[in-house]
Design a protein around this nucleic acid. Structure first.
Lengths: 114, 114
DNA sequence: AAATTATTTTACCATTTAGTTAATTAACAT
DNA sequence: ATGTTAATTAACTAAATGGTAAAATAATTT
């Protein structure tokens, strides 16, 4: 039980419906019906998606009358951003420079072995 | 068929074994056995993870004798980074401070109203 | 040619996921 | 009290996922 939270966050984002829900929440709090409206999907399906997002800590919920409004809780995205940091140098560099970089690394490794 | 590629990338990253494989590839090309070594997992399991990464375009493979070396192909991470761009303002520290600041302002205003 | 090493494929299994319909809960409005 | 609106839960299904063991493929070594 309890998969690591980075995996959980990535998994939650690996679905276009859920990403669209998050995008929708960037403009402010929304009810479940509001969120469901753009999708050709039943309400229980949306409820499930919201549970996934809630478990991944990407949204927070409250109660107002019969509504359960959702709002964005972006903190877990920070963890992804930090994870990305370790790879940024690989995709920001031009292809030629990446190859140079990898070559350098391998040369260094070889030298360290001696 | 053919899920959107952003979903595919996120899904590929939603597994600690696969992320560890990517991390391992940041130091250069590795054979399947090299990659498998740290894990308590059979070779076919690793082969499957590599297929997921390959399908997500996060690794590339070649042939050298009986080896099938893998190397990092970081480009899809760029797409994630770009997706993140739309959310950065929500989780970046400066924003938190801005929120605090705005909250302070509103409190002050309220006090002035009384 | 036979044996070894590296890797994949096949066939299987258990669990999770993404959806459905039907029933239920909760709060509000008449 | 009754009905309406908002949302969830329950029960089910099909497909995907992450793993296994055993067999197959491919190249190398002896």
């Amino acid at each position: 039980m309890s998969i690591d939270s980075l995996s959980n966050t990535f998994a939650a984002l690996a679905d276009p419906t859920r990403r669209a829900i998050l995008a929708s929440l960037t403009t402010g709090e929304k009810t479940v019906s509001d969120l469901a409206e753009p999708f050709d999907m039943t309400m229980p399906a949306i409820t499930k998606h919201l549970k996934v997002l809630e478990k991944a800590n990407l949204i927070e919920r409250s109660r107002q009358a019969q509504y359960r409004p959702c709002r964005l809780h972006p903190e877990p995205l920070k963890d992804i951003d930090e994870w990305m940091e370790g790879y940024r140098k690989f995709f920001e560099a031009s292809f030629d420079r990446l190859e140079d970089y990898l070559e350098q690394l391998q040369t260094k490794e070889k030298n360290n072995e001696e």
